[in-house]
């Protein structure tokens, strides 16, 4: 076996990063931008929702675009979904206790580069009720970018609205 060790840049311990995130603010001078849009994936069922996230490095240094998870959900992003009343959307629960997939894929972006993730949002939230849902995502900013308290800040995407329509009835079906 070839005994190689690859060491990726890790500026500060991950534990410190995430603990701080809970109290951190939105980044005012982020290392990257997040653009949220509708996916090109064709959906048959009305309650299957795909979104597209484009992360663009607008800094002058290399940043992470790491993908973790699976099941078409990158867990490096946090997903905020609210219904028409502003209430958080209900999350998907599995019938048996199965931990979410935890595959890791390293990814880095040089300045000016972009990376696109297509996310199956309905694997995280239930979209089984007709209505309009507001979606926004965020990702921790570059570890070197901190707020006044020294906490890494969040980079938010734009907000999009997803409309779930009632399933077609027999009466609606074309004759």
């Amino acid at each position: 076996m070839r005994n190689i060790k690859r060491f990726f840049k890790m500026a500060i311990p991950a534990a410190v990063v995430f603990t701080a995130l809970c109290a951190s603010a939105q980044s005012t001078n982020p290392a990257f931008t997040l653009q949220l849009g509708n996916s090109k994936i064709k959906v048959q069922a009305s309650n299957v929702v795909w979104i597209e996230i484009v992360q663009t490095n607008v800094s002058n240094h290399r940043i992470s675009c790491t993908y973790t998870g699976g099941n078409a959900v990158n867990r490096q992003y946090r997903y905020e979904v609210t219904d028409e009343d502003g209430n958080p959307a209900e999350k998907v629960m599995q019938s048996t206790h199965v931990p979410p997939p935890g595959d890791y894929m390293q990814c880095e972006l040089d300045p000016g580069e972009s990376n696109t993730n297509t996310i199956c949002l309905s694997n995280v939230f239930k979209f089984d009720r007709p209505g309009k849902y507001t979606v926004r995502v965020w990702r921790p900013d570059d570890p070197d970018t901190k707020d006044s308290d020294g906490n890494p800040t969040k980079v938010y995407s734009n907000t999009i609205t997803i409309t779930i329509v009632p399933p077609a009835t027999e009466a609606d079906a074309p004759k």
């Binding site: 005994n3 190689i4 060790k5 690859r6 060491f7 990726f8 840049k9 890790m10 991950a14 534990a15 410190v16 990063v17 995430f18 603990t19 995130l21 992470s64 790491t66 973790t68 998870g69 867990r75 490096q76 979410p100 997939p101 935890g102 595959d103 890791y104 390293q106 990702r139 921790p140 570890p143 890494p152």
Partner: peptide, 30 residues
């Protein structure tokens, strides 16, 4: 796990270490 600072076991191909999938930051190793 970056929320509890505890270690969680994973069955992996190769030998990587670092944060769990919900935590930011890269993994390292083979």
């Amino acid at each position: 796990d970056c929320t509890t600072n505890t270690k969680s076991p994973y069955l992996g191909y190769g030998d990587l270490s670092g944060p769990t999938p919900d935590c930011p930051g890269p993994q390292s190793g083979t």
